[in-house]
Design a protein around this nucleic acid. Structure first.
Lengths: 222, 222
DNA sequence: GGAATAGTGTCTATCAGACATTATATG
DNA sequence: CATATAATGTCTGATAGACACTATTCC
């Protein structure tokens, strides 16, 4: 019989800020470079399930404002953290960056910056692997839309795809995919600016839509 | 601070037996209908990582004869098992059914039979979800080949895809995918029978290959 | 009218499916 | 030669990408 083990749930939270994909980081403050992703130890009194722990780690116990939450993987080994068998269940979340209260120890950092900065433990890897999953899945689903507010234009959807994927996507192809698929509905409202106004849409289902084919422009960028 | 928790690793092992996709089941013998999938509690002395626990659960500590192993998900909640917060990391494995020693408490059961029989705990669900993952991934990867022996014909590959996916795939399309992709090499050997003999192939890489598009015949069967 | 972005029309290339055809072994 | 399976040729349809074009608003 083996000794018991403490289990953490960590969350890589993504949001869009000025058309940039960002990740939520916490500074535990022990020393300067100790940026981490949010996480909590499972509390079997408080948490009913792993998802509850994930939501608690994001300070959103009832999950409001977490528009999408998906488990990525579980890491467990003797040497993930020195001298300690450690286990972490990793999720990623898509949300609006406004919902996190301004706190000095929290920040939304652009992914490119994250990928070159020093992170605590193996959190760099956890972020990379979550990003990889989000990117792959965005090639054949409507996931990037879950980074947007409830009402959005098709151009905003395109910007969201480009922020997630890291390359340009073709306007007409994307619009064809989106409109042919029948998971968007016009709200009837219109976004005005100093040019032709744009139709506003909303999701008619709270779940991501799966397309039959991937965005193939991706192949040249692999 | 929450109480510690015991963590199990469970494995849904698939193999091909007479062109049928089968799942490895264990009967713990306490009562008749207690078929389960193999599993072990993490032993932090013995196991270096989660994968080690998975391999140990399959009675294959060094992983020989497990041709493919992939983590599917981690289930954790208060009510998965009555009156106990329980946590299980689930993997699926692809292997040759010959490698499991004949033991009275082990059996390879065809998936269709599994899906209609009563299983212990939530193991029915774990199998369904693993199968789902295997099927989805088989639409755009070479995974089914990992159910075959080292040398195989293209017709055997087709049968493997059909066993996994549960529907017929078109011969020419599949061969085009396989041969255009450059992850197979002819062994030079030949499989003989009472008809035209077939070229034998082997994998030139031990990793699954990812195709650019899915097997679209799938769409009609969804 | 000019600037700027929204939204469309349409051609091409690629590739999966369908299915007919040819090839090669055994008995 | 009959049978059975291996392997190929080739047409069609669907759809992603490219990109030029039109539409509509503000100033």
């Amino acid at each position: 019989m083996s000794k018991p083990l403490q289990v953490a749930v960590n969350v890589v939270a993504f949001s869009l800020k000025a058309n940039q994909l960002c990740v939520l980081l916490v500074n535990e403050g022990t020393h300067d470079a100790s940026w981490q992703i949010p996480g909590s130890i499972i509390d079997i009194e408080q948490d009913h399930s792993l998802e509850d722990t994930a939501k608690r780690a994001l300070g959103s116990p009832h999950g409001s404002k977490i528009l999408y939450l998906e488990q990525v993987q579980t890491k467990g080994s003797k040497d993930r953290i020195p001298n300690e068998w450690s286990l972490a269940v990793v999720y990623y979340a898509l949300m609006d960056h406004h919902v996190i209260a301004q706190q000095p120890n929290l920040c939304w950092m652009p992914v490119e910056a994250v990928l070159t900065s020093k992170m605590a433990f193996d959190h760099q890897t956890l972020i990379e692997e979550s990003l990889q999953r989000l990117q792959n899945k965005s090639l054949y689903t409507s996931l990037p839309i879950f980074l947007l507010p409830q009402e959005f234009t098709l151009t905003e959807v395109q910007k969201a795809y480009e922020a997630v994927l890291g390359f340009c996507v073709e306007k007409k192809s994307l619009r064809r995919r989106l409109l042919d698929a029948d998971f968007l509905e016009e709200t009837g409202n219109i976004r005005r600016a100093s040019h032709r106004p744009a139709q506003l849409y909303r999701l008619s289902l709270p779940k991501p839509y799966f397309f039959a084919r991937i965005i193939e422009g991706a192949r040249e960028h692999k």
